[in-house]
Write a protein that binds this DNA or RNA. Structure first.
Lengths: 150, 150
DNA sequence: TTTGACAATGAATACCGTTCGCAATAAAGT
DNA sequence: ACTTTATTGCGAACGGTATTCATTGTCAAA
């Protein structure tokens, strides 16, 4: 199996950040890394419970917060009142459904090349740029249309 | 005073949406329209209390939700676990501080002209585009620097 | 202008997401 | 292995948001 390399890089990653690598942190980080659906803390908690019996919700929140602080993951920008996380730290863009609040990744080299407007870079230190397309996903369009018929 | 025109437009706006215009809705909407700091529901509640004695927090949440539904205001995309609102429905962009989560508006005709990538427009109905610059605001850079010295 | 249908408000309460304090536990370096 | 130090788990607390229901207010028709 080629998974040992991943394990190694996980340990190196944490060591480089100066944070102890616990089982909880490893599994939560690996789980988030394998997903691309920008889960909430609770969704992570659910899908990790079988691998971490007795895991506390509190720990999930604390681990995610610590990973954000360390720069290993990010909290994404989205409408709505629940924090969502993303382990993809490469530049990418987002498609946001205003109805169901789903967030879908979008890769585009054209958009990646966006220049930072002058005037901004003076006081503000830009670390990343992402383009948000907001609107209605296919499912929600359908729901809306059928609702209009009724 | 030229404020009567605004009052008129407010009434027309609500009528066009088919929603009764109450004092609460008018004042909450006007308050949000005059601000550009993307306040939370509670911040709106605070700054409107003197004009609306006996106002309930519940009403603020309901009014903001109704205004979003009607398309008169929008819930902005941001990191963090509290909903923030914006009455500026013109296309504009956002500068987000990852530390203090402040959101600043950015106007740029270059960015406004962004093309929607093909492939997206098939299933997803794009209603708006906005560019997010994420990083550290001047204040938070300062705090971080002084923290590093200690 | 009054009236009536209907929708919005306020108060209390319940709910969900998140954070805190503290005792028990586990990781990393010696 | 041992010690230091940080992390975990639990329970409770907290803040933001949604819900229920009686009361009040809006709008338009009479």
């Amino acid at each position: 199996m080629g998974s040992e390399r991943h394990v190694d890089s996980c340990e190196e990653l944490f060591r480089a950040c100066g944070m102890p690598l616990t089982i909880q942190r490893r599994i939560i980080f690996e789980e988030l890394s394998q997903r691309s659906d920008h889960p909430t803390a609770d969704q992570i908690f659910q899908s990790v419970q079988d691998r971490l019996p007795g895991l506390s919700r509190t720990t999930v929140y604390r681990v995610l917060e610590a990973l954000v602080e360390a720069g290993l993951i990010q909290r994404i920008c989205h409408p709505g009142a629940t924090a969502r996380y993303d382990a993809n730290m490469n530049r990418h863009h987002h498609v946001v459904c205003l109805k169901c609040q789903r967030v879908i990744d979008l890769h585009s080299s054209e958009l990646d090349a966006l220049a930072v407007p002058k005037g901004l870079d003076g006081s503000f230190r830009v670390l990343d740029v992402s383009v948000h397309f907001r609107g209605l996903c296919a499912e929600c369009q359908e729901k809306q249309d059928t609702a209009n018929l009724a």
